[in-house]
Simulated assay, not measured.
Amino acid sequence: MIDTLVTSEAQDLLHQLNLLLEQELKCQPKACGLRLIETTHDNGLRMTARLRDFEVKDLLSLTQFFGFNTETFSLSVNLLDRFLAKMKVQPKHLGCVGLTCFYLAVKATEEERNVPLATDLIRISQYKFTVFDMMRMEKIVLEKLSWKVKATTALNLLHLYHSLIYENLPSER
């Protein structure tokens, strides 16, 4: 009976893993777009991997500041990478793009009562754009990502993989 239960749970987890892997293909940034960013030299006019990494650090800081879930951070990075892989972004607009991706991730993963106002996000992040700029960027990001905010992230796969391993470990361990 217990073996059947464990096998059934493991099969369910494997089924979930397969579904996430299928979704992941649709939610990954396009490799050609990311390669373009990685090979760009830093002349101050074009997007570089270094600038992207600084933006990701800002997203992590905001996630920690607000006490949001790791899923929020993971999704915001996924949204940022997917957008950067599709669009050429000037470095001066990267802060607005990053904060917009963060805001979209917060609205998708956090409870509604925990979602901060856009004005508070802009003030805390110390950017110089307006709420109108951010809302306009939100529309652009959503259109370029085909309105698909929810995405399979590396964190989703790690959680599922952990559950799969944990369920199949002998009880002595």
Score class of each variant (00 low, 15 high):
Met1Ala: 15
Asp3Gln: 14
Leu5Gly: 03
Ser8Leu: 15
Gln16Tyr: 02
Asn18Gly: 04
Leu19Cys: 05
Leu19Lys: 02
Leu20Lys: 09
Leu21His: 02
Glu22Asp: 14
Glu24Met: 08
Glu24Ser: 08
Leu25Arg: 15
Lys26Ala: 13
Cys27Ser: 15
Pro29Lys: 07
Ala31Thr: 12
Gly33His: 01
Gly33Pro: 07
Gly33Trp: 04
Arg35Glu: 15
Glu38Arg: 13
His41Val: 14
Asn43Val: 04
Gly44Thr: 07
Leu45Arg: 14
Met47Pro: 06
Thr48Phe: 00
Leu51Gly: 11
Glu55Tyr: 05
Leu60Trp: 04
Gln64Trp: 02
Phe65Asn: 10
Phe66Arg: 11
Phe66Gln: 09
Phe68Ala: 02
Asn69His: 15
Thr70Met: 12
Phe83Ala: 01
Pro91Lys: 05
Lys92Glu: 13
Gly98Tyr: 00
Thr100Ser: 05
Thr100Pro: 06
Cys101Arg: 07
Tyr103Pro: 03
Val106Lys: 06
Thr109Gly: 08
Glu110Val: 02
Pro116Asp: 03
Pro116Thr: 06
Ala118Asn: 09
Asp120Thr: 14
Asp120Lys: 13
Asp120Val: 12
Ile122Tyr: 00
Ile124His: 04
Tyr127Ser: 10
Phe129Lys: 09
Met134Gly: 06
Met135Thr: 10
Leu142Phe: 01
Trp147Ala: 00
Thr153Gly: 02
Ala154Gly: 12
Ala154Asp: 12
Leu155Gln: 08
Leu158Gln: 13
Ile165Glu: 10
Leu169Glu: 11
Pro170Ile: 05
